[in-house]
């Protein structure tokens, strides 16, 4: 459900930058979404079509770049990723002390305009 407010914010950012660059139309948006950021592509796409109908974003294509979560084990120093989207202890030493290196991203990277 929070995808609605997120989609509104994405549209606001895109339109602001589009207008600043005198865009007639925004054709593509490139979004970066980390695996840990709880954002569902499909719902963003669903709301996107509804809320941008009468804007310069109408019909624009959304591209999602997914960033996998990556962890750094505080005990053995090795890096590892989630398996099947599940949080798990370090596969090398079973320690549960870790830092999150990536996976929390959620930003609009760039847009294409005409």
């Amino acid at each position: 459900m929070h995808e609605l407010s997120l989609t509104e914010q994405i549209a606001e950012i895109a339109i602001r930058h589009g207008e600043k660059n005198s865009a007639e139309k925004i054709t593509d948006l490139y979004l970066v979404i980390g695996e840990l950021s709880s954002v569902i592509d499909d719902s963003v796409q669903f709301y996107w079509d509804l809320i941008t109908e009468d804007t310069i974003c109408a019909g624009a294509k959304l591209h999602f770049q997914r960033i996998p979560a990556k962890f750094h084990c505080q005990d053995c120093g090795k890096e590892y990723q989630m398996v099947d989207g599940e949080l798990a202890p370090c596969p090398f030493c079973q320690s549960s002390k870790m830092d999150i290196l990536q996976g929390k991203e959620f930003h609009l990277d760039s847009i294409n305009i005409v």
């Binding site: 950012i13 865009a23 979004l31 609009l108 760039s110 847009i111 294409n112």
Partner: peptide, 14 residues
Amino acid sequence: MTKNISIVEKVHSA
């Protein structure tokens, strides 16, 4: 002509 504009703005910035 299509032009790519770099933005890199957090969606939560507002």
